[in-house]
Design a protein around this nucleic acid. Sequence first.
DNA 1: CTTGACCTTCCCATAATGGGAATCCCCATC
DNA 2: GATGGGGATTCCCATTATGGGAAGGTCAAG
Lengths: 141, 141
Amino acid sequence: MRIGEAAEASGVSAKMIRHYEAVGLLPAAARRESGYRDYGDADVHVLRFIRRARDLGFSLPEIGGLLALWGDRHRASAEVKRLALAHVEALEAKARDLSAMAATLRHLAAHCHGDGRPDCPILEELAGESCTREATSSHPG
Amino acid sequence: MRIGEAAEASGVSAKMIRHYEAVGLLPAAARRESGYRDYGDADVHVLRFIRRARDLGFSLPEIGGLLALWGDRHRASAEVKRLALAHVEALEAKARDLSAMAATLRHLAAHCHGDGRPDCPILEELAGESCTREATSSHPG
DNA sequence: CTTGACCTTCCCATAATGGGAATCCCCATC
DNA sequence: GATGGGGATTCCCATTATGGGAAGGTCAAG
């Protein structure tokens, strides 16, 4: 299989396949005499593994660890589980951060008239106190 | 104020203040004869605005829009609200994605013994079917 | 005049992905 | 045999926001 076919079969772009090889996530692919990379079903299987791991948000270094465990017949599943749960923690922490931002902003937006008037609690919050940048006239708005 | 003091006062690093200026988020700062950038309280106020907006996950282009609205005495709060809610949608979508990944992985991990044995549903899921990479013997697991 | 803290600009690095150029390989067709 | 087109190769660049670090200029205190 040439790289394009392997890409098609695995769902990983040819660009990314080369990249994964370049950064050492994949071993150097076999080459034809022409210089073209040559892939077999086993390679595609690995690529699919990588793609699924990416879909679950694992970083390339983490996937490197998972691949090593996958290829280790004597692995302990505890190790895999540890990696997975550590990643879950990270994902959940990030999700919480984003949700907190969204909630804050949604709360601010709920108090914004959203009409033609300039008064806006969103901007006031961002500005720190209830002043509108130049604060030329000193009334508290 | 020199840049270090403005950084201290605003919570934005000197590096980032220069960067914001370089990418056009901030106008070119006033300069002393020495070439040092010179900041006043108003500048720090803007920097704080930027920092708060960053803390709410706004991108620099989005913050550019917010700053423009902030400085526009005749803005309609509807416009601010629109920007904010669009951003909220994006944040929530991303949070959902991460939560879904976390849930999937947590589910897989829950079915993993997590002991010394190599059998691991997490790896099996990543591998696509229940085979362990080499599949030398052809029994379906 | 030296020392030290601060500033300047410029380059590099990050994570993962893609765009695009210049060049080459391979196969089919004229 | 020449040619054309699709795919492959490598290499460079861009993204986003942030920081590290080098080489050199400024300023205040000693």
